[in-house]
Amino acid sequence: MTDNEFHIVVLIKPVPDMEKVRFDVEKGVVDRSSAPLEINPFDLNALEAAVQIKEKLGGEVTAVSMAPPAAESVLRDAIARGADRAVLLTDRRFAGADTLATSYALASAIRKLGRFNLIICGEKTVDGDTGQVGPEVAEMLGIPHIAYVTEIREVTKEKLLVVSELGAPYLMELKLPGLITVTKDVNKPRLPTLKDKLKARKAKVEVWSADDLADVADVSRFGFSGSPTQVVKVLVPPMKKRRSQIFKGEDAVDKLIEALEMEGLLR
């Protein structure tokens, strides 16, 4: 990559396939081993956005994940879908991270990668589901961000013109370098070709440990020790039962209205 080439970093979180993952109501645990890892669905849109911009401006797309070693296959999938390079941060010392520690590790890795013009994240993940990592990474890197991007209207090497959902849709401009988080509306991710899939199966994923980031980061801020929030308990609420109150006869409607008022639904 030369100096004036456009460089996009896409942050990709490997998440369990939500259709397969099982939840234990009694023990209150999520059995992550029950489901294989896949690219967080929103990050597919992030990657597609990056590839589309690359197709316009040239340059390179790097995918970065912080995840267990098994996530290498997920990054290979990212390569099949158009990433030129993939970096996996994996180390015991990254484990147990909340969003602050996750963002710190990711921001450090991006620093280590060197020059970048644009970072693209998903709006949120289907597991942790906080939507915090994008803006936190931007803050740590000291760059502006626009969240909830639903449309990318124009791209140049200097700035982006996007539509962002902030309660209402706004047309906004972002100076680069900057970061965006994208929603599902931003594009429809393409399918990889078989050829790209086969090639990616043999592609190399760069694996970085905490020590590999020691020159750009304070390793004590990674993982559990760098995480101020802690999950103290998890409840798996049993499947909600419907109330099944079916009213018949003369005063049925009055009873319905009464019930809806009790629910606070007629306000």
Binding site: L191, L194, K197
Partner: peptide, 11 residues
């Protein structure tokens, strides 16, 4: 022509 491959459940 070149085949495309869907692997995720959603795709």
């Amino acid at each position: 022509l070149e085949p495309l491959l869907a692997e995720t459940p959603e795709e």
